[in-house]
């Protein structure tokens, strides 16, 4: 009985290993919040959300399709923003075309925010597995 309970606990623990990674991807800093790294999570949340929001405010393009290789890379970066990407995509907030120079900056801000969010989520995973302290 105790062996079964230990095995079940180990299995649920292994599943929970990926929880900070997924939570961190969906909401910036959430993976760190789950691990009680409050300040790190707060700074990551503010930095990534501000970067994405400023990109939107500059009229940045939100990649929604993958018609060529550059669009595909842009889409991969934007999807890194997790829920922010899906919400803005479904609400149709992002610009369809880049018309001014600042909009081009905005597009890059949004893509890089997604890539930084992936870095933050992987950092949360490393903290969870003990690879980082």
């Amino acid at each position: 009985m105790s062996n079964k309970a230990a095995a079940a606990g180990k299995e649920s623990g292994q599943r929970a290993v990926y929880l900070p990674l997924i939570a961190g991807w969906l909401v910036p800093g959430a993976g760190h919040f789950l691990l009680r790294k409050w300040w790190r999570g707060a700074f990551l949340f503010v930095a990534i959300v501000c970067m994405f929001a400023l990109g939107m405010a500059m009229g940045g393009k939100l990649y929604t399709g993958a018609e060529n290789i550059l669009d595909m890379l842009g889409l991969a970066g934007d999807v890194g923003n997790g829920l922010m990407f899906f919400i803005t995509h479904f609400l149709g907030i992002g610009a369809q075309h880049v018309r001014v120079t600042t909009a081009d900056y905005g597009t890059k801000f949004m893509v890089v925010a997604g890539l930084l969010n992936v870095m933050a989520a992987v950092d949360a995973h490393n903290l969870r597995t003990g690879r980082k302290h």
Binding site: R40, F43, I48, T102, Y105, F109, D123
Partner: peptide, 17 residues
């Protein structure tokens, strides 16, 4: 200004991670 904002946010994430 755009460069400064970009550098600020990217450096924050780099430093923490």
């Amino acid at each position: 200004t755009a460069v400064l904002l970009f550098a600020l946010f990217a450096s924050t994430v780099f430093g923490i991670t």
